[in-house]
Write a protein that binds this DNA or RNA. Sequence first.
DNA 1: GAACTCTAATACGCATTGGTATTTGAAAGC
DNA 2: GCTTTCAAATACCAATGCGTATTAGAGTTC
Lengths: 202, 202
Amino acid sequence: MARRRLTREESRDLTRQRLLEAGAVIIAKKGLNGASVEDIAAHAGYTRGAFHSNFRSKAELFVELLKRDHQDVQQGLQQILSAGLSLQDMQQQLQMFYSQVYRGNVSYVLWAEARLQALRDAKFRTRLSALLLEKRDMIAYFITQFSAAMHRQPPAPAGDLAFATMALIDGMRFYNACLPEQLPDASVQAALGTVFSATFFD
Amino acid sequence: MARRRLTREESRDLTRQRLLEAGAVIIAKKGLNGASVEDIAAHAGYTRGAFHSNFRSKAELFVELLKRDHQDVQQGLQQILSAGLSLQDMQQQLQMFYSQVYRGNVSYVLWAEARLQALRDAKFRTRLSALLLEKRDMIAYFITQFSAAMHRQPPAPAGDLAFATMALIDGMRFYNACLPEQLPDASVQAALGTVFSATFFD
DNA sequence: GAACTCTAATACGCATTGGTATTTGAAAGC
DNA sequence: GCTTTCAAATACCAATGCGTATTAGAGTTC
């Protein structure tokens, strides 16, 4: 394993990457407030010096984490949208996509943490809102597409229904994680299917 | 205002009460982890001594807060359920009840905080699950009642739909609090109404 | 290879926190 | 009214936190 030496930039990027990953894990585990900079740095194999050399503060790393995850999700959705699939296939793709995205708990917990942060910090709220609105618009577009394909109007403003969709998915995700015996994956799928099809297709 | 002297017990209860109220406010504002015992005690007009004399720890106070709030909500729902109203009236009562319960942000934020806590602490999770299941069962009963009155079967297991209902309401509550201009109260009402009536009544 | 630059480690200061141990003062018991 | 009891204040301590300033060492440049 003759690994070549890294350039300064590569090395720095690697550090940053590791800190971000460690941040995600530790923040998910202990909460934004419970995770110390020391924790995160140590888990990534560094000291606080490295952390502060890469991020101004924990909050900054956190926002970066959210942005990255948001980007990934948006890209995934965009891809499904622009693949030119039939309604059936699109629906199935969406279902698969969400079960993948939410497979690990980490990103879900980060967003839950972010929601709380938003409720109590106005500055953070505006930053998060921008991301939430992007997501809402993406979903609203799906809803519009579905309705158009069914030759109908959406039963309520598409944007509002998009929020409802996000609420439903996230909420069920929580109950599923918290009470897996009471609400197993299959039940979540079935319940979501029931509500969505009743709302959008019947 | 000749206020009579308080007995020892009355005085203690009063202190406890004040600590609980302060705890709710401070925890809602700064998060469970961000709120220090000192914060809470000071906001209630006491010192940490008083706090530790009344609660073993912050976590204990937090659980107490959740239990109390849960009790209140369950009682309210129970009352609506056993009032012998028509479906119409019951529906309206429920709507009113929720808009009242969730008027202030405090209790909502506490439950959001609790959800996060549950995701990362197994012991806490079991304590919270018990409350969540009680609530689910209560709502499931409403769903069963509604369906029966419509001479139908619920379109999916009532318990699962109850979870979906809780998810929807809580999620929309968040978006409403976070982006009130994008999702005003009226839109929440309308969207919820659309989804619920599509799911349960059509 | 010498001077430099920049990343990450280390050292330092200061503020906070939680818990315990002790003290104080007011209610309760006699 | 004297003693006892208990709620709450105070004092103390050890741990942990963040941010900055400084240092060390590896990459870069010439």
